[in-house]
């Protein structure tokens, strides 16, 4: 929590500096994935799936697969649900306007992301199978009809390295 406050402070300081000086630092356009990414990345991430405890996923940042690592959302609790047909979904609270939804724990509606559209990026999650627009277009997820997977269950997820 303290770290988030510090991040907010840093952001505010930097935004202040930029506003005063005029675009010394700029952000890359969010949602602009590297061209080869979407389909390719999902295939790559699936190459060496690793075991992960479901409970360990709660609260993780969900990031865009690009150098600026934009925050798309955060993993909800319970983190994983099983659909009626047995498919696993990662429940992600979307960042929404200015990223505040997932950042400060405000607003942000949850969406169910097919597990293989997400991959482990260290302590974060990278969205490898959906663009931000596709994530934001997903219907708001309600847990009716989907069973939460117990926290101690070990599932397998794809992994990726840093994006540059």
């Amino acid at each position: 929590m303290q770290r988030r406050a510090l991040v907010a402070l840093a952001g505010a300081g930097l935004i202040g500096a930029v506003a005063a000086g005029g675009a010394l630092a700029t952000s890359t356009t969010p949602g602009q994935a590297l061209p080869s990414m979407t389909g390719d990345l999902k295939r790559r991430a699936a190459a060496f799936p690793q075991p992960v405890r479901v409970g360990d996923l709660a609260g993780r940042a969900v990031l865009g697969p690009m150098e600026a690592q934009p925050l798309y959302g955060r993993v909800d609790a319970p983190p994983v649900v099983r659909g009626a047909d047995g498919t696993l979904f990662l429940v992600v609270t979307r960042a929404g306007w200015l990223g505040l939804g997932a950042w400060m724990g405000l607003g942000g509606t949850p969406a169910a992301v097919p597990l293989d559209d997400a991959a482990l990026l260290g302590e974060h999650i990278a969205l490898v199978g959906l663009t931000r627009a596709e994530l934001d277009a997903l219907p708001s997820f309600r847990d009716a009809g989907a069973a939460p997977v117990p926290a101690d269950t070990v599932i397998r997820m794809g992994i990726v390295g840093p994006f540059h």
Binding site: R44, A45, P51, G122, I159, V160, G161
Partner: peptide
């Protein structure tokens, strides 16, 4: 768990 993957090539 698991640790972060990294190498000079993709996974």
């Amino acid at each position: 768990k698991p640790p972060r993957f990294n190498a000079y090539y993709p996974i």
